[in-house]
Write a protein that binds this DNA or RNA. Structure first.
Lengths: 144, 144
DNA sequence: ATCTAAATGTTAGAATTCTAATCATTGTGC
DNA sequence: GCACAATGATTAGAATTCTAACATTTAGAT
């Protein structure tokens, strides 16, 4: 039990490098120029529309305050709109505009292509175990 | 094959949240105050002493230029020393000082404790599969 | 040998992100 | 109903990180 946790502690630290290796050189070419946080946020909003600021900041891995800036930028660029949530006047929900959806689809496609290229060197077996491992982590992440 | 990669692309985006959930609230209490990059770097250097700046920057997930600042800070705080590598005069290797080793051990211990607390809510089964998944990712990360 | 290209580490300035304080709204206990 | 804590979002300033350009050294080609 304790040993498992120690191993996990030891292994956790490779994730930044893993992310770095996968994301490296992913410059999205879209009509509107977005940085990586904006792109990530846009995709997440696209797939889970209508969430609140706090929700998104957690999912995207940013501090709440930081996500405000990202949302501002996406709004200025005409990709999302803040909508007041009816049930709680503190909250605001984010909705995509038409062009927001369009750009999100573009980025999504480009990201898939980018990743496919990055994973080129892996065998089919590696891909399967990577897929399975990520599923496990995603599931566990929900429980934390 | 293509579907596996698409799944991986879809799942990859949960990693920032996963990292955020695990690291949240990990304030190390040591004689010398370190930010999270410095702490992470110090531990990595502790476990792989004598590497070069570029190596470490890659492992820790920082741009080379950013790691220079981290190394500067660690050096100013008396925890590491830049040593010129004999084989290539461009390179410099990082070595820990005595107090660097001491602090590294402290942080390592505190990090383990922090993570153990964070993983409290998981079952033994979850811990096992998480451990296994991270091993897979670490191995695959080496191949990228 | 010499020229060119690549790799290593650094620097400066811009961009991004964090932290802590704040405002507005909601929930709780009395 | 009223004080008071808790939550959602924002803000400003500080801290962190990135990008692009640079100097130095090495490797490769001719």
């Amino acid at each position: 039990m304790a040993e498992k946790k120690e191993n996990i502690a030891r292994l956790i630290v490779v994730l930044p490098m893993f992310m770095g290796a996968l994301m490296k050189g992913s410059n999205f070419e879209t009509a509107v120029q977005l940085n990586s946080s904006e792109a990530r946020s846009l995709i997440y909003i696209y797939k889970h529309e209508g969430g609140t600021m706090s929700e998104y900041s957690k999912r995207v891995g940013l501090a709440r305050g930081s996500f405000t800036a990202v949302a501002d930028s996406l709004e200025e660029k005409g990709l999302v709109a803040r909508v007041s949530a009816s049930d709680d006047r503190r909250k605001c929900a984010l909705m995509l505009t038409g062009s927001g959806k369009k750009i999100a689809r573009e980025i999504d496609l480009q990201f898939k292509r980018h990743l496919a290229a990055r994973l080129e060197s892996l065998s089919g077996e590696d891909l399967s175990s990577l897929e399975k491992s990520l599923k496990v982590i995603a599931a566990i992440s929900e429980k934390l």
